[in-house]
Amino acid sequence: MSGTASISKNRARGARRPDLRVIGPLVALVALVLIGMALNPNFLSYANITNVLARSAFIGIIAIGMTFVITAGGLDLSVGSMAAFVAGLAILVMNALAGSMAGLPVLLLGIALALLSGLAAGFINGILITRAGIEAFILTLGTMGIYRSLVTWLADGGTLSLGYELRELYRPVYYGGLFGVSWPIIVFALLAVLGEVVMRHTAFGRHCAAIGSNEKVARYSSVAVTRVKLATYVILGLLVGIAVVMYVPRLGSASATTGLLWELEAIAAVIIGGTLLKGGFGRVWGTVVGVLILSLIGNLLNLTDFVSPYLNGAIQGVVIILAVVLQRDTGAAR
């Protein structure tokens, strides 16, 4: 028997070669970059690359959390509204505190509040899904509407803007950086690496995949199913909080349209990246590639007059479908 084992082991190692299904999203990304280079010489400029990466950061950070939720067989539609609500709340509280305290403590309190309220919002989603047993799709569709109208209400239908002094103090968190790399990019990169490691190399990541693959098997294998599922939503909430902390200093405001459709972009990025929508398999690096693909499409369309702006959505749709088909077809051929 040990003979069989060692033979098969060798065979498995020999069979490791680049597989289109694995690198599919990367191929799409490289193709987009090549198209960009051909269409506009400024595409690869430092400024443009920085812009694209930084604007990917918000949805990217959220999508990392979404990868865990989806891998564990869940879904969260509320993240876009949640981001808007958390941003609105943080701005409101910071403005209210601004008179009575020095700028920096107010800012730190605002950041802490954003993180905590994100965490709490994620916990509410998670607890209602895991304990009350409400279907994730319906529950988060509900909280999506709730957070969206809460932020509209907070803003009185208009825009919540951070006071001038706080905005100046907060500005560097988005516009500043280290060695010419802006903070959102650094935070996004760190979280992506951390997420990838957690997904691939920790018990938590493995448990997420096991639950998404077959919840019953996971339960029979002594996996704390409820706790792990709850944790995915809490982590996602926290990441929404982090995204908001990076987002608010950009324009210093939040309104009813903040974070509109972010949930769909985040979910699309996760799926383009190769994570299964029905759960059971997820990869964070794929999600990062998916987010970059989505941002690059918008960027490319803005950089050219190639197609009518009316067709932007169509181009985006085609690329999303192609990126997914690329994985499916080669997967089936294997």
Binding site: T202, R206, A209, S213, K216, A218, S221, F281
Partner: peptide, 24 residues
Amino acid sequence: GAGLLLEKSLRENLTLPLLETFGW
């Protein structure tokens, strides 16, 4: 239905109940 994750590898199935003991 309840014993094995059919689309996962042998290794992932084997260690699932005791993952914590394989390093933390």
